[in-house]
């Protein structure tokens, strides 16, 4: 198991972002973490990335506490991870310095494939910036990729490009967890979908099983959350 969550609860003051989440994810799965805004998706990913700690319950990532294995976890936080002045070459410099598993060649190829303009991040459109960040994260040879809303708020063309970039860098031994509420385009990518609502896992199913029951992931999404 790459990820093992046991009764995880996270409180911010009086607000409960997660309430007793149990989840196990084996190696190599591509998991869609779905749910409306405020369902706890970001909190769950941040806990897995070691950005914060559960109030109660236990988290194990790659066989230990997340922060111990942070070198093997590639995390894309929801606000992004770039400052406005950073150009793609500067992002490359930063990543080379910070992450020993960063693949410069792959990064350059991805920039080209994702058509990221060579301008400072502050002057890029949201979709372009998100593609730049995706190139940065997926150019790492990590064992666990945690992507928080990589498709959020970007145009259709960017969304498809981002998904193609993800498939292009896909490695069968790496596990990927992607949170999104743009279910339609991402649907084919997920092997397994975990639906979160109000801090709880409300449905956890293999995507092909859902489809075999005659429902697409998107339709299930509508059903669960309407």
């Amino acid at each position: 198991m790459v990820v093992r969550l046991c009764g995880v609860t996270k409180k911010y003051g009086r607000v409960e972002a997660l309430r007793g989440v149990d989840l196990e994810i084996p190696c190599g799965q591509v998991v869609g973490l779905l749910g409306p805004n405020g369902a706890g998706k970001s909190t769950l990913l941040r806990i897995l990335a070691g950005m914060c700690f559960p109030s109660t319950g236990t988290v194990e990532v790659l066989g230990g506490p997340p922060r111990r294995h942070r070198a093997r976890i590639a995390f894309l936080p929801e606000p992004g991870c770039l400052l406005p002045w950073m150009t793609p070459p500067q992002v490359e410099r930063l990543a080379r310095g910070l992450f020993p598993d960063f693949q410069v060649q792959r990064f350059r190829e991805l920039l080209e494939f994702l058509e990221v303009p060579a301008r400072p991040a502050g002057t890029l459109s949201r979709g372009e910036r998100q593609r730049l960040e995706l190139a940065l994260i997926t150019s790492r040879n990590a064992d666990l990729y945690l992507l928080d809303e990589p498709l959020g708020g970007v145009d259709l063309v960017s969304r498809r490009r981002i998904l193609q970039g993800l498939i292009r860098t896909w490695r069968s031994e790496a596990t990927t967890i992607i949170s999104t509420h743009e279910v339609h385009e991402a649907e084919g990518l997920f092997e397994r979908v975990v639906f979160l609502n109000q801090g709880r896992v409300v449905l956890d199913e293999m995507a092909e099983n859902l489809r075999a029951q005659g429902r697409s992931v998107a339709e299930t999404f509508m059903e669960v959350f309407s």
């Binding site: 941040r46 942070r70 070198a71 606000p79 992004g80």
Partner: peptide, 16 residues
């Protein structure tokens, strides 16, 4: 500002 824009998260997640 770095905390808001997520750079802080990246530093915290780096093996440094």
């Amino acid at each position: 500002r770095e905390r808001r824009t997520g750079l802080f998260q990246m530093l915290l997640g780096s093996p440094a």
